[in-house]
Design a protein around this nucleic acid. Structure first.
Lengths: 153, 153
DNA sequence: CGTGAAAGGGTTCACTC
DNA sequence: GAGTGAACCCTTTCACG
């Protein structure tokens, strides 16, 4: 697709960490003029390398202190079964990540909860209520070692 | 901590999706004047509810098409063992997420790779080389159903 | 790709309700 | 806490070298 040179990589590295840095500051950091820098960022956005800019919220500040990894098995692998499950799981706001997996389990989920009581509620009202589920396995995260949105450049 | 009213929630919801929206536009969207909106955003940033702004890069555009969930067990749970493992795992740029877990496995990792060959290299050069590892279990993601950075408000 | 200038818009005050 | 208006600063974006 688009070949990234050293300067592009530098731009991406900085914008990953400081998504609201002004173009003028960014240009200075990567050693370009403002116009040249703006042109490059524009290309990176339009080519889809930069898919968007987002404020990151502190789960802790919002009182979401628990992270739970949930493994789920369904009663079959029919397309209709998967589609119904996925439609339902998308409705649960506490599910941050959901992947269809190969291997022993069908889906793996990452679920945020305020505390154990909150997770019990989520498990009861949301997870157990998902269609076609035959097995649920919850593992609790004791500590977050790494959490980055993208691969290091 | 800080109580969030309806307007704060709206601000967070918008900034989550459009991290580079100008304060003027944001104020219009939530029905506030620019100054009032700026004051609120300032408070949200300083109180830590907004922990930062980040450009999101498309893993696909960067040719990272594979997502692998890796379960890892160590030879013990001594603090020194865990610390050594964590120091080493942080050096691998392909590891996006790493949690210390309760339950059967000690750690769960989310690893990005360009393709199967790339993952073989990562597995050989990084994962297998991590200290104190006694068991590695790789599961490949077939499809991404959900991937949001934060809990829906 | 860099420069420079013009134009437009954004942020941030002090002040008021 | 929220709105107004104005000043100032900064950013973006041209055309051109």
């Amino acid at each position: 697709m688009s070949d990234l040179d050293t300067i592009d990589a530098a731009i991406l590295r900085i914008l990953q960490q400081h998504g609201r840095m002004s173009n003028a500051d960014l240009a200075a950091k990567v050693g370009l003029s403002a116009s040249a820098c703006s042109r490059r960022v524009d290309i990176l956005e339009k080519s889809g390398v930069i898919s968007g800019y987002h404020a990151r919220l502190s789960n802790k500040a919002l009182d979401y202190k628990m992270m739970v990894i949930v493994h789920i098995s369904l009663s079959g692998q029919f397309a209709k079964t998967l589609a119904e499950f996925e439609t339902a799981v998308k409705r649960c706001p506490n599910v941050l990540v959901c992947y269809l997996m190969s291997g022993e389990y069908d889906y793996i989920l990452r679920v945020a909860a305020k505390d154990l009581e909150d997770y019990e509620r989520i498990h009861r009202d949301w997870l157990s209520a998902l269609p076609h589920v035959v097995k649920i396995n919850s593992s609790f995260a004791l500590r977050e070692v790494i959490d980055r949105p993208n691969v290091g450049l």
